[in-house]
Design a protein around this nucleic acid. Structure first.
Lengths: 207, 207
DNA sequence: GTTTGTGAATAGTTTCACAGCA
DNA sequence: TGCTGTGAAACTATTCACAAAC
């Protein structure tokens, strides 16, 4: 394998492959093939092989991929092998759902801190996590937290992002329907639920 | 403008342009330029002009775009000009948050029906919407509902998708972390929150 | 025989640079 | 002059087809 820049789309697909591999592993599988994995997750086998090829040899020709080593390799590439602590800001309807959401564990994430501006919520616990004052967002990196999740209203989202960056957060998952501007070296991924829904009627009409 | 196939990526950006145009309009603007809109939403001006060019002339050379006609054009292309009714299945933590979520209105969506399997929730109302039995999902298309939102546990998601399709739904927004298989003519958009978060550490480490 | 890994071909998308109009 | 609209160029990603390895 020769070195080439990792395509953006390949990075987007790696978590999908990881999820598929974890699924097969949980079902008791020991190994898989690009065909089996492809059928499971709904892509083409060559896409998987091509994507893996950017990172070196993953499998054995004529045999396939060991699920254990596959999961290990992808986890390492995505830096999911160490586990990550996240801070949630905004414990409203969506924030509460995220606190209770079990799916983060699959990838080794844990929400260990929650913040809200509403005085009545401060000091209470949701899903075992103490709700703290947003104004005392403080030094998250000192608490081992490098990821932030923004679930506050649109108008407050940029201020919260600024505070998170100041507190040492390097990666942000934002649910606010608005562009978040951050310094170089900080990555923001935005999930705009309504905007994703807004694409549906176009496809439905097109058939 | 000559006809060409609309690029997938262009369709993905149209809601972003629409949101930006709506934002400027709400702020009292009458018109805009590709530069202003681009700066607002964080893309390049030529990308906007190129995307619009697939659908014909949107603006006036030397002047810019009228916000009113721009919003009208994009709404029409995305089929958002008529408004859409959606059914929610799964009124757990996430489903409840979605019922209370005000952001859908921006694009003319309304959740008018909610379903759950939990007998204790049936008959109650959440955010003004009556919770009905999942088993009686019935004929949604007869109620003018052509979109479904899936917020049930992963294991039930495919069955719910099948039921929604049977009930006449043509577009599905799914929050289940799993591939949903549907017949031709039905479109599924999946939001896998944990999977999106799973990409973050990769970028954070890469800088 | 089976399945991986990968150059080469094809397809799709972004970026450029400027002609075309107001 | 100012800003749109768009072919052409540059870049990126997908798909193919097959040699290499077990």
């Amino acid at each position: 394998m020769r070195y080439r820049k990792i395509p953006e789309e390949t990075v987007r697909r790696l978590p999908v492959y990881l999820q598929g591999a974890l699924h097969l592993s949980r079902r008791g599988g020991e190994s898989t093939s690009s065909k089996e994995l492809a059928d499971l997750i709904g892509v083409e086998p060559w896409q998987i092989r091509k994507d893996f090829s950017y990172f070196g040899d993953f499998g054995t020709r004529g045999v396939g991929y060991s699920l254990g080593s596959l999961i290990g390799r992808i986890n390492k590439i995505l830096r999911l092998d160490t586990g990550h602590k996240a801070a949630l800001v905004g414990v409203g309807n969506l924030g509460s759902a995220l606190l209770a959401f079990p799916g983060f564990r699959v990838y080794g994430f844990e929400i260990v801190a929650a913040f809200d501006i509403d005085k009545r919520k401060i000091g209470r616990r949701k899903a075992g996590v103490l709700i703290e004052e947003t104004t005392s967002l403080g030094r998250l990196s000192a608490r081992g937290i490098h990821l932030g999740i923004i679930a506050v209203p649109e108008t407050a989202s940029q201020d919260i992002a600024d505070a998170l960056v100041k507190a040492g957060v390097r990666g942000i998952l934002s649910f606010a329907p608005r562009r978040i501007v951050v310094p170089r070296g900080v990555k923001v991924i935005t999930i705009d639920i309504a905007m994703d829904l807004a694409r549906l009627p176009y496809y439905v009409a097109a058939g």
